[in-house]
Simulated scan of single mutants.
Amino acid sequence: MVRVQRLKVNGMAKKFLLLGVALLLAGACGVGAFLGYRAGKAETFHTFIGIEDHSEQRNYAIRYALGLEEFQGITGQDLWVMHSVHPGVTDGFFVDLGSADGVTISNTWALERKGWTGICVDPFPRNMEGRTCQVFAEAVDNVGGRTVQFQDPGSYSGGILEYAGWWVSQETKDNAVEVKTATLSDILRRGNAPSYIHYLNVDIEGAEYMALSEFPFDEYEFGAITIEHNGLEDQRAKIRELLVKNGYRLEWAIRDQDWYVRAGTSGDISATER
């Protein structure tokens, strides 16, 4: 009887041992798959934004896989600014129009972690507690001090109703709220922004052209500008004409994004669309 009980115990121990080994292997595979996914994502983004050196791609991919470097830009805007336009810069200044969430799909969160400072502008900012930038809770327009209807407040697609496009439903229009406008130049002055700003991001749901149309480009210079156009081709063309006139050239056109640099900025490819 004792021998039978011992055999049963030994059998159970072996089963638990095998189960433990299986769980360890599954965990290791899961960790490996997760790290592989992160490395692949990073390498894809670096390729996407024009970093062609394979050793450089691999280095960034490994750092991202291990959690030593993070990015949040939905199409790699932050990576492009950090590694292609301003490589090695740790004291840059940014301005983020339509910053929305301070972390999730933020184009400036990673820059701030690198030591950059700047200004985030959104009439309904959220998740900004861990950010060090100045926050202006205002809607940007070509004229300051106006009271306007703002659709979908607090969301990623919120914006001034009169400039919004096809993506706004009637229900959303009916639930718009009133906000005050400010001009970009006024915000920069109040925020003591430098005359040279390394990066400007503009994502304000149809109001992009109006926000830039009266801007004093002779007072401020931008190293890089990323602008969402939402497929509004007439507005996109007007923005491009405005920026080219003021000394910028299109560097990348990706999905619903146009990315510009100063016309004198060196680069392997100019005005390339992907």
Score class of each variant (00 low, 15 high):
residue 1 M to N: 05
residue 1 M to P: 11
residue 4 V to S: 05
residue 7 L to F: 07
residue 10 N to G: 04
residue 13 A to G: 02
residue 18 L to T: 13
residue 19 L to T: 12
residue 19 L to P: 15
residue 20 G to A: 12
residue 23 L to H: 14
residue 24 L to K: 08
residue 25 L to C: 07
residue 29 C to R: 09
residue 30 G to N: 11
residue 31 V to L: 09
residue 32 G to L: 05
residue 35 L to D: 06
residue 38 R to M: 11
residue 39 A to C: 08
residue 39 A to Y: 06
residue 43 E to T: 13
residue 43 E to K: 07
residue 46 H to V: 10
residue 56 E to Q: 07
residue 58 R to Q: 09
residue 59 N to M: 10
residue 65 A to K: 12
residue 66 L to Q: 15
residue 73 G to C: 14
residue 75 T to W: 02
residue 77 Q to P: 04
residue 77 Q to I: 05
residue 81 V to M: 02
residue 82 M to V: 04
residue 88 G to I: 14
residue 96 D to G: 12
residue 108 T to Q: 07
residue 114 K to E: 11
residue 114 K to Y: 11
residue 115 G to C: 14
residue 122 D to I: 05
residue 122 D to R: 07
residue 122 D to Y: 10
residue 125 P to K: 00
residue 130 G to F: 12
residue 130 G to P: 14
residue 131 R to D: 07
residue 131 R to S: 11
residue 134 Q to P: 13
residue 135 V to C: 15
residue 136 F to Q: 05
residue 140 V to K: 00
residue 141 D to E: 15
residue 145 G to Q: 08
residue 148 V to A: 03
residue 151 Q to N: 11
residue 157 S to H: 04
residue 158 G to H: 00
residue 159 G to V: 00
residue 164 A to D: 00
residue 165 G to F: 14
residue 165 G to H: 15
residue 167 W to P: 03
residue 173 K to R: 15
residue 176 A to H: 01
residue 178 E to L: 09
residue 182 A to M: 01
residue 188 L to A: 02
residue 192 N to V: 04
residue 194 P to F: 03
residue 196 Y to I: 02
residue 200 L to K: 00
residue 201 N to G: 05
residue 205 E to C: 08
residue 207 A to G: 04
residue 209 Y to G: 00
residue 217 F to K: 10
residue 219 E to N: 06
residue 220 Y to V: 03
residue 223 G to A: 01
residue 228 E to W: 02
residue 231 G to E: 05
residue 232 L to K: 09
residue 235 Q to L: 14
residue 237 A to D: 01
residue 242 L to Y: 11
residue 242 L to G: 14
residue 246 N to K: 15
residue 249 R to N: 15
residue 253 A to C: 10
residue 256 D to E: 07
residue 258 D to M: 01
residue 258 D to N: 04
residue 265 T to L: 06
residue 268 D to F: 07
residue 269 I to S: 10
residue 273 E to N: 09
residue 274 R to T: 03
